[in-house]
């Protein structure tokens, strides 16, 4: 038996029910495209310790909900030269309740795969005459948190075929590339070793269904691509930046690995 100090471990069998009534799927069969590598997919929530898990079970205890509330205010606020708010064109966040589960998504008119943030920036600049927001800015993450709440509990269902497929393939290649001086790929940590400790960190599958995540470590909402950046940096590699074509492709691919899990953001992580 191990005599040395170990951190408090997660309850990987716990079930996530928010506010006593909203059931969140945090474990389910892996989507078909993963059949060669995984049998089941698990949300990062399963790998967090009891205290962190509990914080996400009640919206009053979940600090990420504050961001979602600010997102609602932003939604109603007039921004930009056209004198418009989001609410002028969209009937409240409920009317956008399919967004979080289906993005990144191919946009036919623009001929590109768009993340939520790219779409919101398109509305900000082209519809409202406002300044574009920086990738993963606090304002963007508040919008994202609001849209995550609107979609909470619905299954992630990102399309990987059709015109998005080549971008998805690029993302997949990045996922298995061993970057940096430590020569580590996302798969080394999140596919081959989830459930294992890497020093004091309990490795999850690196799913993105819980984003934006409120991290206790930095006490704010965190975006998907900023998280990717941190993970790539930790391989002693030159990272890509949030908003780069590489991270857009990687987000599409990683999101698709979570097809079937519930949208659960804003989640709480350490």
């Amino acid at each position: 038996a191990f005599a040395f100090a170990a951190p408090v471990l997660a309850d990987e069998d716990a079930e996530l029910i928010v506010n006593g009534d909203l059931s969140i799927v945090t474990k389910t069969a892996a989507p078909a495209h993963l059949s060669d590598s995984l049998d089941e997919i698990l949300s990062g929530w399963r790998f967090r310790n009891d205290d962190t898990q509990v914080m996400q079970m009640d919206d009053f205890d979940n600090p990420g909900m504050l961001g979602a509330d600010v997102g609602l205010d932003q939604f109603a606020a007039v921004m930009g030269s056209e004198g418009k708010s989001c609410a002028d064109c969209h009937d409240g966040p409920e009317s956008l309740s399919t967004v979080r589960a289906t993005y990144p998504k191919w946009n036919e008119a623009a001929g590109e795969v768009r993340t939520m943030q790219m779409q919101i920036n398109d509305c900000l600049t082209n519809q409202m005459g406002a300044e574009a927001e920086k990738y993963d800015s606090a304002k963007m993450l508040n919008f994202e948190a609001m849209l995550a709440v609107a979609a909470r509990g619905t299954p992630v269902n990102v399309a990987i075929d059709g015109p998005a497929q080549s971008v998805w393939e690029t993302g997949k290649e990045l996922y298995y590339t061993r970057f940096g001086q430590l020569e580590l790929s996302c798969a080394n940590c999140h596919e081959d070793n989830y459930g294992n400790m890497i020093r004091a960190d309990h490795l999850s599958q690196g799913q993105v269904n819980g984003f934006p995540t409120y991290r206790l470590k930095n006490a704010k909402l965190n975006g998907i691509q900023s998280r990717f950046k941190g993970c790539v940096r930790d391989t002693r590699a030159e990272t890509f930046n949030p908003g780069s074509p590489e991270f857009i492709a990687l987000e599409l691919y990683v999101a698709s690995r979570g097809n079937g899990l519930s949208v659960e953001g804003p989640s709480v992580r350490n």
Partner: peptide, 24 residues
């Protein structure tokens, strides 16, 4: 293997300057 090579200086993909995230 996942174990890094500790006595090697090249052959990396996007080698970084330690943990700065910047290019080596």
């Amino acid at each position: 293997t996942m174990m890094p090579a500790f006595y090697k200086t090249n052959g990396y993909i996007r080698p970084g300057n330690a943990y700065t995230g910047k290019a080596a």
